[in-house]
Amino acid sequence: MKNKISSIGILGGILMIYYIAPVVSLLFWNANNAIIPSVMNEDVISAMITSVGTSIVSVSISCILGIPLAYFLSRTIFRWKNIVLFVVFLPLVLPPIVSGMVLLTLFGPGSILGLLAMSSGIELTQSLVGIILAQVFVISPFIVIATKVGFDSVDEKLEYTSRSLGRTKIETFWKVTLPLSMRGIIAGIMLAFARSMGEFGATIMMAYYPRTMPTQIWVSFITGGVEKAFPVAIVLLVSSIVVILLISILGQEVRGSYAPY
């Protein structure tokens, strides 16, 4: 038994090293004191604000639209459920660049929606709206899938009990189902936020400007090579770690007050 645990530990350890080593290696990369100037660079600051801001908005939109869908998928049995699930998974299996191309056909300047929006003064591409459209497409499946797992883990008898005690369906959702699904929801938000901060393929197709951090890294790379891209990458890495840690701490606070297991 002890040997089995040791073997599992070694295999898992190899994977952990494989995750950590490149990150540490990047952090210890000889930046020639280029990190501080990178952080102070106006374009990098602007890209960071764009990435964090759009990610917050995209995750929020994904939660507002995705959590009800996850609840519906978890609690309803219907004939076409597997097809709906396949549709939810679709953005995950598409290469991000293809997702961007697909979105361009719908929201691009030559599309009906693009022209309608343009006539109302809203640009669906090359704008913050374009970035958010791309991010929501790519990250919302993480929210739907993780939240559905969370809802699946709540015994429906708890909901029936709540309703038999006089609480409505909506009250039961807020007081019982949602708190007990919080673990899945927070996992979904963390995954979605991380994915959103790093999203590049679909975003660059929808909006080269304003630049997000991944787009800024790519621009730095093609204009100045690896030497210029690395300091910006380190800034993205550190900011992503900080944001994920913040969500994680917040998640533990929420979980602690809701779900004891």
């Binding site: 015994d155 708890l158 709540s162 309703r163 038999s164 369906k169 019982v176 779900a259 004891p260």
Partner: peptide
């Protein structure tokens, strides 16, 4: 009537106390 309007409290075999 829906469950909540029936005034029929139900207690199941399984533990259905709200764990949070």
């Amino acid at each position: 009537e829906p469950i909540e309007k029936r005034s029929t409290a139900i207690v199941f075999q399984e533990d259905t106390l709200f764990p949070h």
